[in-house]
Amino acid sequence: MTAVLRQGRTRGLIELCQSLTNAGDLFNHCFWPALMLVTLYFMRHHDYGGGFPLAGLVLPSILGMNAAMAMVTMSQTLTADREDGTLLRAKATPDGVGAYLVGKVVSVSGALLVDLAIFLVPALLLVPGLATASPAAWGTVLWVLALGLLATLPLGAVLGSVFGSARAQGLLTLPVLAVIAISGIFYPITALPGWVQGLAQVFPVYWLGLGMRSALLPAGAAAVEIGDSWRHLETTAVLGAWAVAGLLIAPAVLRRMARHESGSAVAARRDRALRRVA
């Protein structure tokens, strides 16, 4: 296990460094934070109650949303590696599949932290009134982020095993956007119908946003949340349940998928991709 973790960490750090020195990847790292900053800019003069700016509610929610979106990145990356034969090469080495999965967790998590830093530094200058001077606030950000990644990245690996091609990944985008739309990211969830609130609380996106809001917003902002509370216990329980389920299911699903990988399967997928391009 130690060797797998060490190999995976090294692999993940190499992939992260490559991502940060590639022009196309750097553009992707900057584009989404820039888009969210523009959103905050246009929200800065709108209040959601008590004179607190709507942008103040949205900023921490976006941090939680980005952590959830790492699930999509993980799924897309795994599917792409499956198509180009990277996963097949990992399968051919001792402990390769386990090291591959650890490496993806490291690289995707590292890329997420870079994206959050690019967004957060200018966003804090744009939105006043956040609890940024409190060490306890940043401690909450860290544990919510860590637990949220444990809840979402294994799920991304499972979804990446389900989709047979990068093209099919498009089927994942709309459901994820729908979950984000009902999860209180851009407006208080209490403004939505009760059944929608119940549905949103099944998924990690809502709890990631709630956890981040509890860290960075003043105590009075809880008045617009369900039960007028930050519900830290419930946040820990739901994200923890998703994390346990993902960590139990993802390695088994990935090993099963790797067993079915072969040179002929990779070649067939390449041929189909080339025919689509032609």
Results as ranks from 00 to 15, higher is better:
Leu217Val: 14
Ala267Gln: 06
Ser134Arg: 10
Leu145Ala: 15
Gln18Lys: 04
Pro154Ser: 07
Lys104Gly: 13
Ala146Lys: 03
Lys104Glu: 12
Ala241Asp: 07
Ala166Cys: 04
Gln7Lys: 10
Ser109Trp: 07
Asp47His: 11
Thr132Met: 09
Pro60Asp: 05
Arg82Ile: 08
Val144Lys: 00
Phe42Thr: 09
Met43Lys: 01
Ala146Phe: 08
Cys17Gly: 13
Asp228Trp: 10
Leu155Asp: 00
Gln76Glu: 07
Gly240Glu: 04
Ile189Arg: 00
Trp230Met: 09
Leu125Ser: 11
Ala151Met: 07
Ala221Phe: 13
Leu233Ser: 14
Val244Gln: 05
Asn22Thr: 13
Phe163Lys: 00
Thr152Lys: 03
Gly148Phe: 11
Asp81Trp: 11
Leu120Tyr: 06
Ala178Asn: 00
Thr73Ile: 10
Gln18Asp: 05
Ile118Cys: 06
Ala223Arg: 11
His45Cys: 01
Pro33Arg: 01
Met43Glu: 07
Arg269Cys: 08
Leu54Ile: 09
Ser262Asp: 06
Leu35Trp: 01
Val141Trp: 02
Pro33His: 03
Ser264Arg: 12
Pro135Ser: 07
Leu145Arg: 02
Glu83Thr: 09
Ser262Glu: 02
Leu145Gln: 10
Thr140Tyr: 00
Leu112Lys: 03
Val114Lys: 02
Leu247Asp: 04
Tyr206Pro: 10
Tyr48Pro: 00
His260Val: 10
Asp271Met: 14
Trp143Glu: 06
Ala92Leu: 15
Trp143Asp: 07
Gly64Met: 04
Ala70Ile: 09
Cys17Thr: 12
Thr190Cys: 06
Gly198Thr: 15
Pro193Val: 08
Gly198Ser: 15
Pro204Arg: 05
Leu40Ser: 03
Thr86Asn: 06
Val162Asp: 00
Ala99Val: 14
Met65Lys: 07
Met74Lys: 00
